[in-house]
Amino acid sequence: MMKIAVAAANGKEGKLIVEEALKRGMDVTAIVRSENKTTAKKVIQKDIMDLTREDLEGFDVVADAFGVWDPAKMYLHSVTLKHLADILSGSRTRLLVVGGAGSLYMDKIHGLKLSETPDFPKDYLPVANGMGQALEELRKRDDVAWTYISPAAVFDPEGKRTGSYTLAGEEFTVNEKGESYISYADYAIALVDEAEKGNHIRQRISVRK
């Protein structure tokens, strides 16, 4: 039975990842700062920054669903991800990161990011830049079996669970209607699929409907 821990499990995406993993019969542990609000029975009640190497021993996968919106706290994306990578360094535990769409590339030569395009919403720039910086730092790690999973441009917390998605790579893609969309629920399916398969070690991938 696969053992998975979900960091920031009380968040909207974290809860759905917990639910999806439990549906598949996985051994799931929620990592939460406060009272557990997920469906997981096993809990580590700690701030991410207080987690130790010993806390995460024995897990096949750690899913990092951490996110902040306060522009003054964007540095926490890098700080928390580095801490998780540090305590997983050299272990066989894989680290799956709930990433952002802003860092997806708009061209084959990877010279332009979605967040750098003229129509990118200014309100989302801080989080796009914060998460993008964390990704760039993660790319330098060859001591951790990480996978960074970017959602579509429209990442819908209230969207339906359809059970299907399209897997893509580093470049921004759209569906046949020209849309870049994924629900939180379908993203959770994609992440747990990746947890099961482990096909993209030290790679950034992306998912959309």
Results as ranks from 00 to 15, higher is better:
residue 49 M to Y: 00
residue 164 S to G: 07
residue 116 E to A: 13
residue 193 D to A: 10
residue 17 I to Q: 02
residue 74 M to V: 14
residue 90 G to H: 08
residue 201 I to K: 03
residue 12 K to Q: 15
residue 69 W to F: 14
residue 185 A to R: 13
residue 199 N to F: 04
residue 28 V to G: 10
residue 68 V to I: 15
residue 95 L to W: 03
residue 103 S to K: 00
residue 42 K to T: 13
residue 48 I to E: 03
residue 19 E to D: 15
residue 197 K to V: 04
residue 184 Y to T: 07
residue 204 R to V: 07
residue 127 V to M: 14
residue 204 R to C: 08
residue 21 A to P: 06
residue 53 R to N: 14
residue 195 A to Y: 00
residue 152 A to S: 13
residue 161 R to Y: 14
residue 19 E to T: 11
residue 91 S to G: 13
residue 196 E to W: 00
residue 94 R to M: 03
residue 155 F to R: 07
residue 24 R to N: 11
residue 118 P to V: 12
residue 136 E to A: 09
residue 110 H to S: 07
residue 202 R to L: 02
residue 134 A to W: 01
residue 13 E to N: 11
residue 14 G to C: 06
residue 122 K to Q: 13
residue 25 G to L: 05
residue 63 A to Q: 10
residue 187 Y to K: 02
residue 164 S to A: 11
residue 203 Q to Y: 01
residue 85 A to Q: 06
residue 116 E to W: 03
residue 164 S to K: 14
residue 88 L to N: 01
residue 195 A to F: 00
residue 120 F to M: 09
residue 179 E to D: 14
residue 74 M to N: 02
residue 81 L to V: 01
residue 197 K to H: 08
residue 40 A to I: 04
residue 153 A to I: 01
residue 149 I to N: 10
residue 88 L to P: 05
residue 87 I to V: 11
residue 22 L to Y: 05
residue 102 G to I: 00
residue 32 V to M: 08
residue 155 F to N: 11
residue 5 A to T: 07
residue 147 T to A: 04
residue 56 L to E: 04
residue 130 G to C: 10
residue 118 P to H: 10
residue 114 L to Y: 01
residue 97 V to A: 01
residue 126 P to Y: 06
residue 154 V to S: 06
residue 9 A to W: 12
residue 1 M to Q: 14
residue 159 G to E: 06
residue 107 D to W: 00
residue 15 K to V: 11
residue 148 Y to D: 14
residue 57 E to M: 12
residue 109 I to Q: 14
residue 92 R to S: 11
residue 98 V to A: 09
residue 157 P to Y: 04
residue 84 L to R: 03
residue 149 I to M: 15
residue 23 K to T: 14
residue 9 A to E: 13
residue 5 A to K: 13
residue 62 V to K: 13
residue 132 G to K: 03
residue 3 K to E: 05
residue 29 T to H: 08
residue 135 L to R: 10
residue 92 R to A: 07
residue 81 L to C: 07
residue 189 I to H: 09
